Simulated assay, not measured.
Amino acid sequence: MPTSPNGALGSLDYKKEERHALAIKSCEAPPKFGTPERQKLIDEIHEYMLSKASPVPQLSPSQASKEHPTNGDGEA
């Protein structure tokens, strides 16, 4: 989600702020699946992946408005 989909077929056309929020949310918790033993492994892998990932950069209001300028009434 780091780049704009530019209307690609089957893509989701979210504003930069929304993609940023979704990226942060996707890191918050590992997926829940399977037996307790499998979940323990998933949790461990999730923690390992987070320890290797770069921090998510903060999105300033000026960065967001550059990608999706509004027409004055709050609509892009």
Results as ranks from 00 to 15, higher is better:
residue 71 N to G: 07
residue 27 C to H: 09
residue 3 T to P: 01
residue 34 G to E: 10
residue 32 K to P: 00
residue 26 S to F: 07
residue 50 L to T: 07
residue 29 A to Q: 14
residue 58 Q to S: 08
residue 28 E to M: 10
residue 20 H to D: 11
residue 42 I to T: 03
residue 22 L to T: 00
residue 12 L to E: 12
residue 59 L to Y: 00
residue 26 S to E: 14
residue 49 M to N: 10
residue 11 S to C: 06
residue 36 P to I: 08
residue 39 Q to S: 04
residue 23 A to T: 12
residue 61 P to Y: 01
residue 7 G to P: 05
residue 54 S to W: 03
residue 57 P to A: 08
residue 68 H to L: 14
residue 4 S to W: 09
residue 27 C to E: 12
residue 24 I to N: 00
residue 16 K to D: 03
residue 27 C to L: 14
residue 22 L to Q: 06
residue 38 R to C: 14
residue 68 H to V: 11
residue 75 E to R: 05
residue 47 E to I: 09
residue 9 L to S: 12
residue 14 Y to P: 00
residue 8 A to W: 02
residue 73 D to R: 03
residue 19 R to A: 06
residue 6 N to S: 12
residue 52 K to G: 03
residue 43 D to P: 00
residue 66 K to V: 13
residue 32 K to S: 11
residue 45 I to C: 08
residue 57 P to E: 10
residue 1 M to N: 07
residue 40 K to V: 08
residue 10 G to M: 07
residue 35 T to D: 13
residue 9 L to E: 14
residue 25 K to R: 13
residue 51 S to H: 00
residue 15 K to F: 10
residue 73 D to Q: 07
residue 12 L to V: 12
residue 31 P to L: 15
residue 14 Y to L: 15
residue 11 S to F: 02
residue 34 G to K: 04
residue 18 E to W: 03
residue 38 R to L: 15
residue 10 G to K: 01
residue 65 S to K: 10
residue 50 L to K: 10
residue 73 D to I: 08
residue 50 L to R: 09
residue 24 I to L: 13
residue 42 I to L: 08
residue 21 A to V: 11
residue 2 P to A: 11
residue 71 N to L: 11
residue 39 Q to F: 02
residue 17 E to D: 13
residue 42 I to P: 00
residue 18 E to L: 11
residue 45 I to E: 09
residue 29 A to Y: 10
residue 21 A to S: 11
residue 60 S to G: 06
residue 72 G to Y: 01
residue 10 G to H: 01
residue 54 S to G: 01
residue 30 P to H: 03
residue 55 P to Q: 12
residue 44 E to N: 04
residue 33 F to H: 15
residue 64 A to R: 01
residue 15 K to S: 15
residue 76 A to D: 08
residue 42 I to M: 04
residue 58 Q to D: 12
residue 56 V to F: 02
residue 33 F to M: 15
residue 7 G to T: 07
residue 22 L to M: 12
residue 5 P to C: 10
residue 53 A to M: 06
residue 62 S to W: 06
residue 36 P to F: 04
residue 62 S to D: 15
residue 70 T to V: 09
residue 39 Q to W: 03
residue 33 F to W: 14
residue 40 K to N: 10
residue 30 P to V: 05
residue 11 S to I: 08
residue 2 P to K: 11
residue 57 P to D: 09
residue 67 E to H: 01
residue 69 P to Q: 03
residue 62 S to M: 11
residue 55 P to R: 06
residue 29 A to N: 11
residue 60 S to M: 09
residue 60 S to H: 02
residue 55 P to T: 09
residue 10 G to Y: 02
residue 5 P to K: 04
residue 75 E to L: 12
residue 71 N to D: 12
residue 3 T to R: 07
residue 21 A to L: 14
residue 76 A to W: 02
residue 18 E to I: 10
residue 29 A to R: 14
residue 42 I to Q: 01
residue 38 R to Q: 15
residue 4 S to D: 15
residue 28 E to K: 07
residue 27 C to R: 14
residue 58 Q to I: 13
residue 43 D to W: 00
residue 36 P to A: 07
residue 72 G to M: 03
residue 29 A to M: 14
residue 58 Q to T: 09
residue 9 L to C: 07
residue 13 D to H: 01
residue 12 L to Y: 05
